[in-house]
Structures are given as structure tokens and as C-alpha cells.
Computed example of a mutant assay.
Amino acid sequence: MKNQLFLIIAIFTCINLYSQNTFVFFGSFNRDKTTEGIYVYKLDTVKGKLSKITSVKGILNPSFLTLSPNGRNLFVCTESKTKNAGSVSSFAFDPKDGKLTFINSQKSGGENPVYVTVHKNGKWLVNANYTEGSFSVYPLSEDGTIHPYVQNFQFSEGSINKDRQDRSHVHASVFSPNYDQVFFTDLGADKIRVYQFESDKSEPLQPAKQPYIKTTLGSGPRHFTFHPNGKFAYSIEEMGGFINAYRYEHSTLESIQRISTHTDQYKDFESSDIHISPDGRFLYASNRGEENNIAIFSIQEDGTLKNVGYQPTFGKQLRVFDIDESGKFLIVTNAATGNVFVFKRNPETGLLKKVGKKIKFPGASSVKIRRY
């Protein structure tokens, strides 16, 4: 009887495992609404192979995307790098057939939206607009409909590099681990801006006691992430080529380290994206320019970083990458060469190995992985 029970449990476990699908969503710079802009693939979680499920036309430059907490909606920055334009768009996603259905779009509140994120309660959307240095907050309906923004903050001050920092350029909007704050990296002003987020208010963004953190002049902070333990945070500099490590305590950031993302042999570089493995042991940072690789760091107990290697990305202009929730795979998007590669992670060393086959489509710019 006991053996039969174990057999039944094993069978149901196997059925559950094989019934799960891992989908990969890609955004791109398609430059033309008549061409494909968003792509949905299925990931073989044994071999790392990507298989195309569907794609979407009719939208322009869907350059960055994210998913709702329940995975039923895809939210996208649209009309990016489009003069006098900019929007955020919503799609419904059905994991049964992999179909994406357009819901609606709203103006982004500034030119060139580059980042979008969703509150854990699924009721709020926050975006970042690069060119005009602003960010907006939108209410969301349960079905994923985006309503007009209720708050829009504009900034004008720049920094010391007059070519790149003539004014504010907000590049990311990231919720704190408890979703009670939002951090905005401002590449143009060399600041990380901080706001309290009170989700029960009609205008949830409120000034924080620590309104911003200054970064090194001319460094250009780009993306930002928190450690899974909620005690540390990390910002990558696009122009400086460094990672800033912070201790996060009592809703404030305290700098604990600034470490280079690139090797000394390269002088032309643009660091871009940053992610931490789900187990919290390794941090990954991407370098563009001449280098085109991912820098790999082990995370020490005190939150500081130690470099353990570099992985070429086999393409140019890596804009965004993502790690699946199991921590087994890392997927990169090379915008200039229009290709995508899957890497398998070694959980002990943090090192990467290319698997599967190259996927090609023009302007590959963003990727999000989700298991259903």
C-alpha cells in the first residue's frame, strides 16, 4: 500500500513537471509597425533550445517589456526612440496556446520610454522615460488595461558630460523588496532618485526622506537590482563601467563598494544590464562596445563582489538579458547583430556555457522568462 502511494505521488509529480511550460518573451526595435516587434518562444528546460510560438505586428519599437505578477499580462515600452512620441502598451497572454492579444496603450508622459515595472498587487504600473528625463505612474485594471497616468515627474538637471548628460535621462524604475519604495536611475544627472510608494493612495508616489543618492560624476547609472535577501542593492553605470554595491537598511542605501565591470584591455565600453541569480550567490553585468560580454561576480556575505570571469555574448550591443526563475538558464539579446543566445549556468561556479541554437530577428532588445 505504501509503495502504491509513493508511485501515485511520483506519477502526479511527473505530470505536473511536464505540464509546466517556460515561455520567453522578446522585445525589439522593429522600426516599422508592419514588421514583427514582439516574439514569444518556448524554452526547452533540458537542452536550452528555443522554439517560436508566435509574434506580434502593429506596434513600433517595443524595446523593453515585463510581465504582471500573475503572468497574464505583458507590459511593453512602445514607440521608443520615436521623435515626439512614446507609449506603454498592454497585452493579454494565454499560456495554453501562447497567444498575445493587444489590450490598449497610453502615452508614456515623456519621449523614449525605456523601462516599465509592475507593483506586486498588479494594480500599478511605473515607467521611465529616457530622453526627457521623467517617469509616470498608471493604475491598472484586473484584466491588464492601462489607465491614463495619475502622476508624472519631470527633471531637467544634467551632469558633467555635456554630450551624454545635457539633461536628466531616467533609465530604470525598480521597486524595493517590500514594494514600498521605487528607485529611479538617472543617467543624465548621476543620481538614483528615491520615492515612497503608497499603493492605497490615488497618487502613490511620494517624496522619500532620502530623495536621491549621488553617484560618481560622469558615471551614468543605468540599471538597478536588489539582492534576493533584500539587504543589498546594485547599480550598473553605463558610462563609468562600474557597479555600485549598497547596503539597504531602514529604506536607505549606503555605499559599500564600487567595482569595475570590464577588463583593463578595453577602453570603449558601455555597461548596460544587471541581474542576480535566484540563489543570491552570483551577479551578472553586461558590457557593450568593444567588449560585448557578461561579467560574472560572486557575492560575498557582506554584499561586496568578487569577479570570477567573463562570458562573450557572440553578438554586439547586448541591451538586456534575463535569468529564469530556476537559475538554470541566462538569455541575452544583442541588438546591433539582431541575435539571441541561451546560456546554461553552473550553479556552483556561476560560469556560463552556450547551449541551443542562435535565434535571429532584427533589433533584439529585451527578454523576459516565465514558467507557467
Rank of each mutant, 00 (worst) to 15 (best):
N16V: 10
R258K: 14
D163R: 15
Q317R: 08
F184H: 09
I276D: 03
P139E: 07
D273E: 11
E132W: 09
F321C: 10
S176M: 02
R167K: 10
Q151F: 11
P362T: 13
D32G: 05
K47N: 14
L125S: 08
T117F: 01
I296V: 10
I15T: 10
Y266D: 04
I274R: 15
G122H: 04
V320C: 13
V126H: 03
K99A: 09
P362C: 03
N292M: 05
N293K: 02
Y310P: 10
G144T: 06
T82R: 06
D163V: 15
L5S: 14
V24I: 14
G218Y: 04
K316E: 05
N244D: 10
D180S: 10
S90I: 06
E36A: 14
N104L: 06
T131L: 14
I38D: 06
R370Y: 13
N178Q: 10
V40T: 07
K368L: 01
G280P: 07
M1E: 14
V24Q: 11
R222G: 00
R345Q: 06
F25W: 11
H119W: 05
L43I: 13
T35I: 13
G289E: 07
M1C: 14
L50R: 10
F297R: 11
R288C: 03
Y130E: 09
R247M: 06
Y39F: 15
K49M: 14
Y149T: 10
V137D: 00
D44A: 04
D264S: 13
F102R: 01
V308I: 13
N112K: 07
S365M: 02
P69G: 00
A336E: 11
K42T: 13
S168H: 03
Y41D: 02
V194R: 05
F343S: 03
K120P: 03
Q300V: 03
F102M: 04
H171D: 02
P177T: 00
Q311K: 01
F6G: 15
I11K: 15
G356C: 05
P278H: 06
L187Q: 06
G356L: 02
I8S: 05
I38Y: 08
A92L: 13
S251V: 12
Q4L: 15
K33D: 09
A364W: 02
S271H: 03
N21I: 14
K358W: 04
G230V: 08
N21H: 14
F321G: 10
G303L: 04
T82L: 09
P113N: 08
P207W: 00
G27I: 07
H147Y: 14
F12N: 05
I11P: 11
H227S: 12
I8C: 09
Y18L: 15
I11Q: 12
R247L: 08
N121C: 01
L60R: 01
R258I: 12
I276G: 04
S68W: 02
G133W: 06
T333E: 13
